[in-house]
Design a protein around this nucleic acid. Structure first.
Length: 819
RNA sequence: GCCCGGGUGGCGGAAUUGGUUUACGCGUACGACUCAAAAUCGUAUGAGAGCAAUCUCGUGUGGGUUCGAGUCCCACCCCGGGCACCA
């Protein structure tokens, strides 16, 4: 037999699989369906790297095994191709984004095909295809129709030099990533999607799905539902009460007596309204200007040196005790959360505490910690009259007038009632989640299908006119006016109003990249449909997705967005279930050999093509499963790749040495049975690394006991290995004389009876430390074990002259003598 | 700053979820084969002490619970992901 030569066998089988088309999923098959999904790639100009291929190979193994178990598997792929990276790439390389996209896709496709993955290529989709984005636009029209898409004035990062809006990512230390100019803020009219209307359902329905706990927690925290109270503070100027009031949101109304000042966001309208009464308006204005130059992240990060400015000339009145307290403007308070104003309780909120200390503001302790929380370290230590730290927990009220002595929980209710009676407060729910900014002033995206008519307002493009095709233009660079480049094409912009036929203009903003990826998994069920986004029966057959794998970095954006859109489609009777994905797993990123992120600029990118050329696709696939825990970030190691290649050579050798053996020994049958179980269990748990390790152990065992490895064991070995290393197993399978593909074989079931061990190693401990081991019958009783143990020489040495206090016996495992 | 993870040999990691720490792989050393090298095969490989049997220590740091802690609890340190216009 020849040596193992992946370069020779892999292309042969890839061709065979593609021609026979047996990875095509069958609509409405009688077999049980299984929809397995990877996040479709963004075809960037950098090409595919080994970070992409890890999850593809892993989920491919799962798909292949499920097929062998008799499932009708859908394992599709497509291209998420609109968006900034391609636009920037196009500008830099002077290639039209459409051409660049086509080239990039062709490149990715070629690279992916070298891996021998079992994707159903007949269902390939592309978000930049007008036949596809017709339905992306259609979903937008439905959102608009239901009042969930609206326009609002929203501040964006603005580079005054490039004259474009910037993503936070493009702002580095307050400067534009491209030109280095100081980034400012500019208000633009933006399309928004009301995801907040679904906030509660997005939390509640997490109960219905199988996601990693940390993904659920991240989403819940991101949505950030908190129940609290809105409290009104009257505003006074120096002489009298004004009509103005400041409303704050708080989750701690029980601490209201400890409120010693208010803080409003610099954008808060009160500042503009009471301009004449504000004595230091100039100063405040200056402060507002300064904070506008900071990004939101900077504003909340600088917590230690929180900056702020007292608004002089006006005061707020604490509604429970009528005390006059100062009002500050400070940029650690965000206008986008709550009411954009807070009541500050320095003793019971660390941020307020830091701020109060800096500006020498009074602190009043109003919550006494419960007794049991005191002993360790009294949270608020009064030493020479100053406090060390805020106490944020609950307790008993003090210095709170008629509410003294109440428990925080009860006080929350009572104080809220007190305020409600006087119309100064009411319960409410706030979310951290914000509505979703849905427009981009860029070329490379789906045009938003709206027409602005002077008479009729915002008019949706009639469904029959979809898709609104993105015109092919030469000038796709940003315009410098803040508008999308589409605004410069007058023949495209100027249209007749679909309602009144009067002169009207098209919306020129495009959609963000998320628009196309929100619903792509639905399109795979019926990718060529031009009557609807997908046939209802096909959606019914295939959805929900049984297993969706993707990166953790998508947890709070793509994953949440697509759940929301699916819920919306469920409400309008397009989707048939409230949740799109039954199960979610996540993979970690692959770092470069030097532990840094793979990046062209570091020159440390590993291209799968090179690995395949040298070691073959099977080695690459197996290595990426073996390299470490699937859900953790991990560094690439070319040495490690070699180890896996050696393993496959051993498989090849085992086969050539044992192919004429007849019968397998009992222990060989037992070992492969154990391996079978290990694969079944660990694959469900995405523990790919231990599966590969178990294979290695088995092959090591087999090579040490070659005469015991019969044809039946070889056959089973190949079948078990085939989802992970599809090429080598197919080759050896055919060399055994089989005609049909190994991937059409059925998955073996392990024998539970064979798993039982008759003899076990009993661990003997003295005071919890291992002192001896002994081989015993697996069913040994406690009495027998104790007798045996006490007779052991080593044990005798340890317990000599000591009194045995206790003996702990764990059946089948260990015995511990406590002296 | 906030939210979520992680920290085990020289390195990537394993540990049936409270019960033999370091499986599997890499690397290294020695040996076999070879004129030689590579490849391959074999042996060893946490640290310290000892001729040895063996003993002590050891899962980021400090404390706690337990017969027994990598695993549970408290405090701290370090690293990674996310923070809304990258995808």
């Amino acid at each position: 037999m020849e040596n193992y030569n992946p370069q020779k066998i892999e292309p042969k089988w890839q061709k065979y699989w593609e021609e026979s088309g047996f990875y095509r999923a069958e609509d409405f098959s009688k077999k049980k369906k299984q929809y397995i999904l990877i996040e479709f790639p963004y075809p960037s100009g950098d090409g595919l790297h080994v970070g992409h291929t890890r999850p593809y190979a892993a989920l491919d193994a799962i798909s292949r095994k499920k097929r062998m178990e008799g499932f009708n598997v859908l394992y599709p792929i497509g291209w998420d191709a609109f968006g900034l990276p391609t636009e920037n790439y196009a500008i830099k390389k002077r290639i039209h984004p459409q051409i660049a996209t086509e080239k990039n896709i062709a490149n990715f496709k070629k690279q992916i095909k070298n891996l021998g993955l079992s994707f159903d290529w007949s269902r390939e989709i592309n978000t930049t295809d007008p036949k596809y984005y017709k339905w992306t636009q259609w979903i937008f029209l439905k959102l608009f129709e239901k009042g969930l898409a609206y326009q609002a004035e929203i501040p964006v990062n603005w580079c005054p030099s490039c004259k474009i809006g910037l993503a936070n990512e493009e702002v580095v230390n307050g400067k534009c990533e491209r030109c280095g100019a100081e980034v400012g803020e500019k208000t633009l009219k933006q399309w928004m999607i009301k995801i907040t209307a679904y906030a509660d359902r997005l939390i509640d329905d997490l109960k219905k799905v199988d996601y990693p706990e940390k993904v659920k927690i991240q989403q819940i925290n991101w949505i950030g539902r908190s129940e609290g109270v809105l409290i009104k503070f009257q505003v006074k100027d120096l002489k009298s009460k004004t009509d103005e009031e400041i409303e704050v949101f708080t989750t701690r109304p029980d601490t209201l007596f400890g409120c010693t000042y208010l803080v409003v966001a610099p954008e808060h309208p009160i500042i503009e309204k009471l301009k004449p009464q504000i004595k230091n308006y100039r100063f405040i204005e200056d402060y507002i200007e300064k904070s506008k130059r900071k990004s939101e992240r900077e504003r909340i990060s600088e917590i230690k040196e929180k900056s702020g400015a007292e608004i002089k000339g006006i005061k707020a009145v604490n509604p429970v005790n009528n005390r006059e307290i100062p009002i500050f403007a400070a940029d650690y308070v965000l206008s986008s959360y709550g009411t954009g104003a807070i009541m500050a309780v320095p003793c019971h909120d660390q941020r307020d505490f830091d701020f109060a200390k800096k500006y020498n503001l009074p602190m009043i302790e109003v919550i006494k910690p419960y007794e049991e929380e005191l002993p360790k370290e009294a949270p608020i230590v009064v030493s020479n009259g100053s406090f060390r730290k805020a106490y944020e927990g609950e307790g008993v009220l003090i210095s709170s007038g008629r509410f003294d002595g109440l428990d925080s929980k009860i006080a929350k209710e009572r104080i809220t009632e007190f305020l409600a009676k006087r119309n100064l407060g009411r319960k409410t729910i706030c979310y951290k989640l914000r509505d979703w900014i849905f427009s981009r002033q860029h070329y490379w995206g789906e045009p938003i299908p709206i027409i602005h008519c002077e008479k009729c307002g915002k008019v949706p493009v009639p469904e029959k006119d979809l898709p609104v095709e993105l015109p092919y233009i030469e000038k796709y660079q940003p315009t410098g006016t803040g508008e999308s480049p589409l605004a410069t094409i007058s023949e495209w912009v100027n249209v007749k109003c679909p309602q009144c036929a009067g002169p009207a203009k098209r919306e020129t903003d495009t959609m963000p990249n998320w628009a196309g990826s929100n619903w792509y998994f639905m399109r795979y069920t019926d990718p060529k449909n031009d009557k609807s986004l997908a046939d209802k029966n096909k959606l019914k057959y295939w959805l929900p997705v049984d297993w969706y794998n993707g990166g953790f970095e998508h947890t709070t954006l793509h994953l949440l967005y697509s759940r929301f859109i699916y819920k919306f489609l469920f409400d309008i009777d397009i989707a048939l279930q409230p949740e799109p994905y039954k199960r979610r797993t996540s993979h970690g990123i692959v770092l470069a050999e030097d532990g840094r992120k793979m990046s062209k600029s570091f020159g440390n990118v590993i291209n799968p093509d090179d690995i395949i050329k040298e070691y073959g696709a099977d080695t690459l696939r197996l290595y990426e499963m073996f390299m470490g825990p699937f859900d953790q970030a991990i560094s690439w190691s070319t040495q490690g790749v070699k180890g896996v290649f050696r393993f496959l050579e051993k498989v090849w050798k085992l086969f050539s040495d044992c192919q004429n053996n007849k019968k397998s020994s009992k222990s060989a049958i037992k070992e492969i049975n154990k391996l079978n179980k290990k694969i079944d269990n660990d694959l469900e748990a995405t523990k790919f690394n231990t599966i590969v390790a178990a294979f290695m152990e088995f092959i090591n065992f087999a090579l040490e006991n070659k005469p015991e490895i019969g044809r039946d064991t070889l056959k089973k070995t190949l079948i078990l290995l085939s989802p992970f290393a599809p090429h080598i197993t197919e080759e050896l399978w055919h060399q055994m004389g089989h005609e049909e593909s190994i991937h059409k074989q059925s998955w073996p079931k392990y024998d539970k009876k064979l798993l039982k061990e008759k003899i076990i190693t009993l661990v003997i401990q003295v005071n919890g430390k291992v002192r001896d081991k002994v081989e015993v019958d697996a069913n040994i009783s406690e009495e027998e074990a104790k007798k045996l143990t006490l007779e052991r020489e080593k044990v005798k040495r340890w317990i000599e002259g000591k009194r045995i206090k206790k003996v702990i016996f764990v059946p089948g495992k260990l015995i511990n003598i406590v002296i």
